[in-house]
Each structure stands twice: as structure tokens, then as C-alpha cells.
């Protein structure tokens, strides 16, 4: 006797064979199965599009492919239009560094499944490269760009927004460029960067990809990589402002008053989060604040940028 599973398999083959006989009326042109398989493997476009293309060009695989590539761009835009209101909280930041400047770009998507996808990562690195190439100069060496400025940039005569739309069509998820920042190097400073990925480190064509990134500009001399340590601190502790270089002289009376208040409130010290970079406890050596650590090691921080993928910027 057939076991349940075998029985089902048997029934299935019968059902499949039965289906082979019912030819659907609107698909009369015979498509070569091997060609269909080849085209699908080569392009990765949906099976039904491959078939349509082959039917249209009478099994001419070359023409079918060109037609599909054109079609994909159109479909991408249609899809992007449909999906544009869907919320995005995932994605990647990409960072590139050369002799003149460091650029970081954030690209968002809906789920981390897409963020892990190779196509998406390739797109981010293309965008980062194009953005790095076209970033305008500024006087103070720091440039912040919004999504519109980046979208209209071109890479090999294709606008970045076109590239995004193409991938939206392929992945079926909303994708958008969010922002970019760039800090340029000069002779009196050191620009350093740090990227933190939520998995193992990701590097694609010399571009570091991750969830968090920070760039700092520190005056020379950069004592044993302190700029890099600072970047790591900034990623980890999320400061929002620089703080005062020279702290106000400490008034003994005020200190006593503060101590009293603290005892009254009895709140855990960690509950209150310090937002000023220089007043934060240094991540890599918790007995110093960043200020005292820097004073011991001498360099001065001129500027910093921090980017966390999907962070709330207080916009709608």
C-alpha cells in the first residue's frame, strides 16, 4: 500500500500531467524551455517576463534581453511609485575615503532582508562612489547633502534615482537615499573614520558598509590613532554636540548643592545621558572624560559627523 506521502506524490504527478494537456489559449507561441531557462539564469528577471520577451521576439534571446532591460527600468519606476509611502527603518551607511576627503551616505530600505542582499549592497557602494565624486566644495570643509541633491547626481549617465528605481523593481521593496555628509582633508588636520556593522565587517570595492559611521577631524598631531578612537567613541556614545572646550571653573558651593540634589533624587547616574562629546565618559578608558583624555594627549577636535542608519531625525 502506498504511504500517505507517496500517495500524494503520485496524485501530484497525475495532476501535473493533466495540466500539461490544457494549453492556455493566449499562449500559442511555443517557447524553447532551454532558452527560457538560459535567459532567466542570465538576467534574473521574473520567469513570466522572460517568457513574454521570448514570445515577443520569437525566441531571439539577444533582443529579448535588451527589451527586458528597458522594460525593467519602466517597471522599477512604476513599482517605486506604488511603494513610495511605505515606511523604511532599515538599510546601510556606506563610507569612502581617499586623499582629499571622506564621504558617508545613508540608504534606507524596509527590511533587513534587503539590507543583507548583495544587489542592495552593490547599489549602496555605487551611490557612495558617485556621491563622493560629485560632492561640491565648501569653505569650512564640511558638506551635508539631502536626498534630492543626491538623487539627481549621475553615474555613467544614469541618475542615481534611476538606479534606485531599478532595484526597487527587482527587490519589490521601497528603497531611498536619505542623506550624505562629507568632510574634506587639509594639511593641518587629520580626518579619521569608523564604521560599525551589525554583523562581521563588510567592505565592498574599498567602501565600508555598516549600520553606524562616524567621521572626525582632529588637529595634528594625531597621537597614536586618537582620532580613530574618538570615532569609535562617537559611534558608541552618540554625542549630539561638541561641548565647551574650557569647562567653567567649578564652584565648591555649587558642587555641594549638586551632590545634595543627587542624593535626594537618587537616580542612577546612567539614566541621565550626557549629550556633549567633551563631557562624556571616554568609551575606551572610563576613568577619563573625553576632554581630560584629549588634554592629556593634546590634539583638538575640530568637527565630527555621526550617522546611524534609520535613526529618528525628528522629521515626518
Amino acid at each position: 500500500m502506498l504511504s500517505g506521502y507517496n500517495k500524494i506524490r503520485f496524485m501530484r504527478t497525475v495532476a501535473q500531467n493533466a495540466r500539461l494537456f490544457c494549453v492556455q489559449p493566449n499562449k500559442q507561441v511555443a517557447v524553447d524551455k532551454a532558452l527560457l531557462s538560459k535567459l532567466r539564469k542570465k538576467t534574473g528577471y521574473p520567469m513570466i517576463n522572460c517568457k513574454k520577451a521570448l514570445v515577443q521576439f520569437d525566441n531571439d534571446i539577444k533582443e529579448a534581453e535588451t527589451w527586458m532591460r528597458e522594460q525593467a527600468q519602466k517597471e522599477g519606476w512604476e513599482k517605486a511609485g506604488k511603494l513610495q509611502d511605505r515606511p523604511m527603518s532599515q538599510g546601510l551607511v556606506g563610507l569612502i575615503e581617499d586623499d582629499t576627503s571622506v564621504t558617508v551616505v545613508e540608504v534606507n530600505c524596509e527590511t533587513d532582508f534587503v539590507a543583507k542582499n548583495e544587489n542592495f549592497q552593490a547599489l549602496v557602494s555605487q551611490i557612495v562612489k558617485a556621491c563622493h565624486k560629485h560632492t561640491p566644495q565648501s569653505d569650512n570643509g564640511k558638506v551635508l547633502l539631502d536626498n534630492n541633491e543626491i538623487n539627481s547626481m549621475k553615474d555613467e549617465d544614469v541618475t542615481l534615482s534611476d538606479k534606485v528605481a531599478l532595484l526597487v523593481g527587482k527587490l519589490g521593496e521601497n528603497i531611498a537615499i536619505r542623506r550624505a555628509a562629507s568632510i574634506s582633508k587639509d594639511s593641518s588636520t587629520v580626518v579619521s573614520s569608523f564604521v560599525h556593522a551589525s554583523g562581521p565587517p563588510m567592505v565592498k570595492d574599498g567602501i565600508k558598509l555598516g549600520k553606524f559611521a562616524a567621521i572626525t577631524k582632529v588637529e595634528i598631531p594625531d597621537v597614536d590613532g586618537i582620532a580613530k578612537e574618538l570615532c569609535q567613541h562617537i559611534v558608541g556614545m552618540n554625542p549630539t554636540e561638541m561641548g565647551e572646550w574650557r569647562p567653567k571653573p567649578i564652584d565648591k558651593k555649587e558642587l555641594k548643592k549638586k551632590k545634595k540634589e543627587k542624593e535626594e533624587n537618587k537616580s542612577r547616574p546612567e539614566d541621565k545621558v550626557e549629550q556633549r562629546l567633551l563631557d562624556q565618559e571616554f568609551l575606551l578608558d572610563s576613568q577619563f572624560t573625553v576632554r581630560s583624555y584629549l588634554h592629556d594627549n593634546a590634539p583638538k577636535v575640530e568637527d565630527f559627523v555621526r550617522m546611524e542608519c534609520g535613526e529618528d531625525l525628528g522629521e515626518d
Binding site: R40, P46, M47, I48, F113, V114, K116, N117, E118, N119, K170, L171, G172
Partner: peptide, 11 residues
């Protein structure tokens, strides 16, 4: 069946 395996099938 109209699409085949797509990027997220893999992920």
C-alpha cells in the same frame, strides 16, 4: 511560478 526564485527567497 511567474517569478521563480528571487533575491529574498534566498535571504
Amino acid at each position: 511560478a511567474t517569478d521563480g526564485t528571487m533575491p529574498q527567497t534566498r535571504e
